[in-house]
Nucleic acid binder design. Sequence first.
DNA 1: TTGAAAGCGCTACCAT
DNA 2: ATGGTAGCGCTTTCAA
Lengths: 334, 334
Amino acid sequence: MKATIYDIAKATGVSIATVSKVLNNTGRISEATRKKVLNAIEELGYEKSAIASALAGKNTYTIGFLLPDINNPFFAEVARGAEDAAFERGYSVLICSTDHREEKERSYLKTLRHKRMDGLVIATGTTPRETLEELMDEGVRIVLMSREIPGALIGSVMVDNHRGGQLAAEHLLSLGHRKIGLIMEPLSIGSAHDIFRGFQKAAEGTDAELFVSKETGFGIEAGARLAGEMLARHEVTALFAANDELAVGVLQACRERGIRVPEDLSVVGYDNTILSRIVTPALTTVAQPIYELGRRTVHLLMDGIENENQPKNREVLEPRLIVRESTAPPPIHR
Amino acid sequence: MKATIYDIAKATGVSIATVSKVLNNTGRISEATRKKVLNAIEELGYEKSAIASALAGKNTYTIGFLLPDINNPFFAEVARGAEDAAFERGYSVLICSTDHREEKERSYLKTLRHKRMDGLVIATGTTPRETLEELMDEGVRIVLMSREIPGALIGSVMVDNHRGGQLAAEHLLSLGHRKIGLIMEPLSIGSAHDIFRGFQKAAEGTDAELFVSKETGFGIEAGARLAGEMLARHEVTALFAANDELAVGVLQACRERGIRVPEDLSVVGYDNTILSRIVTPALTTVAQPIYELGRRTVHLLMDGIENENQPKNREVLEPRLIVRESTAPPPIHR
DNA sequence: TTGAAAGCGCTACCAT
DNA sequence: ATGGTAGCGCTTTCAA
């Protein structure tokens, strides 16, 4: 069987208390015995049980990451940033895809509690505030990503999506577009809401007309469908999509209809995921610092865990506009 | 504080042994006490500590998933399949991106052992055989994905990549291509090796000439670079890339050089990740059942865990050719 | 059908 | 500087 502290205590002739001390660098230990113990550990190939350690009151060094779908380029990149940050500091991350389904989220939350995660990062948009507060009351550290809850003292790292929406609008406006369609995610999602408000804000006071898709959605298919409806209904010269997947859908809808991008119609995406780079024409998009978003969120969380307090800071990262091939001035009409 | 079995034992007037039994549905318990206990559990909001349970000899219900990079469309989709399979059966998955770096892999393997994962799926191509055998000797269940180790009794689920390579070659050959370039991943990776052999095999006995990229690589950049070199050196009419990312790079290299796909050059990818669908022209590619690959691997692993034996089965999934827009007959030369 | 008690492997407090 | 020991919360014989 695997060696335990007892084995190494026996082998060294010291007590398990001493072994534990050298293991954790706590208390005072003479150089001599420390050496002895370290040797025995080496010899016996001893490895500390994180489980026992956790049960005895230490951390599990594992954090749970709730996100809508790991198989979504945006969240895959976020997750990578999160994982790297965690790895640097000896933590691991448990990925939980909720598919925007409340019951999956609840179920995951439950397991994460059972498994005594040291902390949680919540990157799904809709966890009820009470749930979060209950969790925090139980001592679970929580950090929100791309979301904040007004008045609740929960640390969060976000991108300034209001600004991001503005950037998109300003770009289109400055190209001369005056009839712009918006393909949105559900506005109940905080980030989508902010993007929308930012966009609106930038158009305010101009003579531009904004048309918002009646329905909302997430993936490529949805983008294509919503763009189709929009195009059938309004004479827009530009379409803004609240994420790159929707924008890719828009591009596909255009192709199907023989609409040239950007000559006939300009398209702007949001996120700057891998998709926006490889599509043709390459998408003009508002870049979120996605990887960094994941990193910072997890660092904030680990800081809280290690200082034994609930993170309360709010970090805001800046978006930036990336102009590629999908935008141009509107076509000249007779 | 959180309630423990002691609390609910006290509240019910039974022993903790009894509580444990109703919790686990073991032993015989009268309906009456079971009800009482269940009630108390409800009232006190009791939740079993997975940590304590694991220490006392049960499973952790957590598995580790070693892969090169979660932020890679292929592995993100695999991970999703894995996560879904795990979720269905009450397991969680710890994502470990190794970046093909041996020391990261070793480091992760160590942590996973400390944390007493119930099992591991190894989807990185290069873990030394001895390491795997050591792990298995320690009682860690392991399943390999897209890889197998001849002679070692390790369960695995793979795609028939030899067949996949053939499919790609046959398609190109049947279109009439006779000078074909191959942009490969390092052949030390089992799947790449199989693809290559399959491709070769299909070309054997025909008058086709194959040119293999001297260097190998992984991402889009590499694909573009290797395609550039290939195109400069050989007069090929088709390029096959061992994964879709490489193929996307090939497409970019073509665009830069004004080479039309598929009119001037046909391009075939491998994997059928999201990338191959959204690129222009849409990529003809060999589809791996990616999501299914993740699912099956994890199910195989969980079966082993629950039957308390190291999985030994070898499952093979079938690839299939998906013809899209990037392939056509070779151009007619004078 | 139920319970007492001995662990699981480690931490931390209190003595020495 | 070192050790004894009481937990941490649960599982699992073995008795009753």
